[in-house]
Write a protein that binds this DNA or RNA. Structure first.
Lengths: 224, 224, 224, 224
DNA sequence: CATGAATGAGACTTCATTCAT
DNA sequence: AATGAATGAAGTCTCATTCAT
């Protein structure tokens, strides 16, 4: 755990640990702001008011530093989810908690997903671990018939993470803050019906209603 | 906006236009494969078998080239949507068409979204234009009561784009192909219930169904 | 042959080839003066009055540049030996030629021998090719009984290369010039007795001398 | 020469001297393994389990440390030669002893020889001191007519050191162990005849024999 | 005395971009 | 119009060395 990212000396001292924390904190900021490629070690060092060499004293290189930042972030969010998940409440409440937590802690690091021989390898296992609680929850709810079983879980997963990240990115691009509580509630309110098992009769009725409505409008448009 | 591409585009001979198209085509490939930062002008020139300098004869620089690539891509997808959108079919069918088109033409250019003094500014208006047909459709459907009105349209939008992009990224990260037809169908099947108004009571639906049925029968009786 | 060390463009033009030759020439000087590790690409560029980047335009890196320098040097000396070797003269004369050529063209590049994950791999095959003419000569002379067969050829080889290099190094360390003709003669004069078969008895030699002499006289008598 | 090692060596407590010995021992290992440039002070400190700073407490720097290592090594080998040299035995036996000792204690430090503003200056006097016993021996043997006097002693010296080092380097490059006893015997067996005064008659006969043989072979080759 | 911590100086390398031909 | 050639600027990383504690 220690010897992975430490350069030579093994700085287990309080000072060293503080340094490591500082570097990680600032690095997270910079990586989040700029993305992996556009982040420079110079920038990180400058923001901390230390020499670039110091950064390399504690981390083997830019890549490893980024991996650590990501790992730490995943650890944080995983811990938050595992600890706080209200397992005794309804699936819907659990989903809401999950979304809220993700929105609160989401780290924008597009390159992670990015192709090239980038950090891809690092992400996959973390992603799996991270997604596990949600997937478990969904699987259980599906087995108990609480949510629909006619679509692959991976699709459900994408339909939960996808909107969250889309919203956050949009907010970042527009430089607007996100009202996390409200957004979490809205997302779940929106998606919840999508997750329920399609009650056949109701679903059929709904569809019928929709189609007739549309047909009506089309006739209306032409008529006028 | 005006000073872009002024350089020597004045003559715009047939040959030159072909060059520009070639460069744009290959540049799109490379940007999509590698992302903005990891793309090199060398790579683009090499794939075309031309000199790097030639690229700079037609474009002011890497950045401008990328902006053009993105603009062209947006133009394409916007045109595809505007032309192909089956306006006379149901909202659901239109949504499906939209999703299918997006999945087919989606350009993965994570950095585009990226912040920093990147391409962010370029994306916002394009994104707006691109989203317009979908938003219009949603707005109309909401006004007619076909889809829910209790949540902001922007959320609905995110809940459509988000999953699509999440799925595509996942596929890219895992290097797996995407079955576009099937995925489009699944996404819509999943999300459709989420878009419907939540407050339509089954009773109301049944009543409506009954009335429409009766009306239909009456028409039938007369016609024959 | 070309694409190995060329960076992007394939500069087969006269100008480019001149550049490559210039860089190789200067690089050889610097590597010889400083050794691999202490040589800097900056130094090479400065001596040529060009930018460092230009060096990297023509060679993939310091390492490859050094490999090229060494290969070229080996090629040169191998060609010189293969072309100039007086095969119709005595073994001793051939040896002298070999020593003279080596002394004239020897490149001091200690690190080549050096361990570490340096250039070692590059040297072995070249060394083998380079040594081949000498080893062949020695093997033939040994098979014909002209030189001793009681010691491994590799030892004989070391006893020829060793002194040469020792002398050259000494001269370099003391910054004194080497009188190549004289040194070559001396080395062979010294080593020749060491190479002869030790067991040829003087008696046998005398007898042989006598017989040959008699034979000669007989020929002479007939010829006149 | 005087200002070297003055730093804090004044007290020279027992503990400190042990430290110095330890550092020198390990430094010798590392320098021998990696060469001067590729050796890092970090590596030396790590192998000793001490801090890098401690190394600098006892030595002014890497360079001085290396000089000390070399000096010590020379001292050792000089002492070994001076003490062990079997002065009452034959010159040949003494030579053998010398070779064996050198082979056993040889320190591979190519860079030492290296030029540049390297350690060159350090080597010359040490080399002189080190070579002294051998040179004396050779001088005496030459004066007594035991070995040849027609060639400069420096050449004889190179013809002894050269092969030894060539063999050792080869062994290191190929990562093979050296059978020291056997190699020492072989080297002397090979070189001894080279050192003997060329008995004029025998030498002339040998040469004659060699040339006639070669001539014969050449005729034979053409004839067939 | 020993060392934890920090760093200045410099190495190699990449790449978008310019310009004369 | 096309390009061969060159490079400035910048980026990542290494390492001997210093100094306060």
């Amino acid at each position: 755990m220690d010897d992975i990212m430490v350069r030579r000396r093994v700085p287990a001292s309080a000072k060293a640990e503080q340094r490591i924390r500082d570097i990680l904190r600032v690095a997270r900021e910079v990586f989040a702001e700029m993305g992996y490629e556009r982040t420079t070690t110079t920038e990180i060092a400058q923001r901390l008011g230390i020499s670039e060499a110091t950064v390399f004293t504690y981390f083997h290189g830019k890549r490893e530093l980024c991996v650590r930042v990501i790992e730490d972030w995943y650890d944080e969010i995983i811990a938050a989810v595992e600890q706080g998940m209200p397992r005794d409440q309804s699936t819907k409440a659990q989903l809401e908690f999950f979304v809220r937590t993700h929105l609160r802690l989401f780290l924008v690091l597009s390159e992670g997903r990015a192709k090239g021989q980038g950090l891809g390898e690092v992400f996959v296992p973390l992603q799996r671990r991270y997604t596990a609680p949600l997937m478990d929850m969904l699987a259980r709810a599906r087995d108990s018939g609480e949510i629909r079983s006619d679509l692959p879980l991976s699709l459900l997963r994408s339909s939960i993470f996808g909107p969250m990240e889309h919203i956050l990115w949009d907010a970042i691009a527009r430089q607007r803050p996100v009202d996390i509580e409200r957004t979490a509630k809205d997302i779940v309110a929106l998606l919840w019906p999508a997750l329920l098992p399609p009650d056949l009769e109701v679903a059929a009725l709904r569809e019928f209603y929709g189609e007739v409505g549309a047909a009506l409008r089309r006739v209306g448009e032409r008529g006028e």
